[in-house]
Structure formats: C-alpha cells, structure tokens
Computed example of a mutant assay.
Amino acid sequence: MRSSPSSPTGARTRSRTPAPSSRTCWHGRTSRPARPALAAVLADGTLIGSVAVWVDSAAHRRGEFGYVFHPRHWGRGYATEAAEMLLDIGFRTLGLHRVTATCHPDNVGSWRVLEKAGMTREARMRDHKLARGTWRDSLLYSAIDPTA
C-alpha cells in the first residue's frame, strides 16, 4: 500500500499491479495489455471505493475506466483525483490514444468529475444499459492523449 505524495486528499490505494513510480500509487504495467489495472481506494485505513482502467482495443489503442466510491466520501475530491490518475495510467502506462468513461445522466456529481478531469461529453447513449430490468441511458465522455 502506498500513498500518493501529490495527493491533496491523502488517499491510499492497494493495487494488483506494482507501483514503479513514487509520483503516484496507481501506476503499474499489467502483464497483458487487455488486463485491467485495479486499485482499492483507502482513506485512513478504510476502504472507500475502487477504480479500474482497461484496454477495449489494443489495435486501436482505446480504453475505458470506471470508479465507485461510498456515498459518505462523495464531494471530497477522491473521484476527481482518481479520474485524473486513471487517464494518466491509460495514456502514459498503457499507451492508449483514447480513453472513455460513462455515467448516468442524472448523476451530476459523476459527470462533473469527468469534466473536471478534462474529458469531453460526446453523446447521450439511449437505452445503453439494462439495470434491474430497466433500460437506462448513459452519457459518454472521452479524452484523447494530449501528447498525440
């Protein structure tokens, strides 16, 4: 378990992949390109969420990320910090050109996180996911490698 020295929130993670960089605890190459990089997010030793980034298409250098945090820890910057770090992993560690994320249209907090992380809203995807027997829409966000 490592703390990110640059972390304003002081969150710590426990990761399935080693963290070779002292700059952040989220970095680590996976042994296979399509295998997700996963981390549990801890604050003061308590599990408060989890995050993941994965490769959708190695040939097209495309990936996606997701996160979930316990509601008691919303509004404290953890999700924004995680989204920024996941984009960094996607671009710098996994070599992706394009990274996407989705959220429910009513989840204002989540789409604000994605926008604060520098992602652009591309679309509202109608009937994108079947949740508890009901079709629901999703908002699609993306970011392109800034060094490309």
Rank of each mutant, 00 (worst) to 15 (best):
H128K: 05
T17W: 13
C25Q: 10
S50W: 07
I144P: 01
L87R: 02
R23V: 14
T30Y: 02
H104E: 09
A11Q: 04
W26R: 01
C103L: 03
L130N: 14
S57L: 11
L139K: 00
T9N: 06
G118I: 12
D56T: 12
P36A: 11
V68A: 12
P33L: 05
G90N: 04
A131Q: 15
F69H: 00
T46E: 14
V108L: 11
L130G: 08
R12S: 13
G95M: 04
G133W: 11
S57A: 12
H97S: 07
R112C: 11
Y78L: 02
G45M: 09
W111Y: 11
R62K: 06
L42F: 15
R121V: 08
S21N: 13
H27G: 06
A83H: 00
A143G: 00
R92K: 09
A58W: 15
L114H: 04
A143T: 00
F69C: 01
S31I: 09
A37S: 11
S4F: 02
R136W: 10
R98C: 09
T147G: 05
R124S: 07
R61D: 06
M119E: 04
G109P: 09
R92E: 15
D127I: 03
F69A: 00
S7T: 06
Y78R: 00
A131H: 15
R132W: 14
P20S: 13
L130E: 12
V55C: 10
D88E: 06
W111S: 01
W111G: 01
R2F: 08
V108R: 09
A143Y: 01
P18R: 14
I89M: 05
M1Q: 12
C103S: 03
T17V: 14
M1S: 10
S3W: 14
W54M: 15
S4V: 02
K116E: 06
G49D: 03
L38M: 15
T13Q: 11
R29E: 15
L42K: 02
H60M: 13
V108K: 03
V113E: 01
G118C: 03
A143D: 01
R121D: 04
R16T: 10
R121N: 07
D88H: 05
R23E: 11
S138R: 14
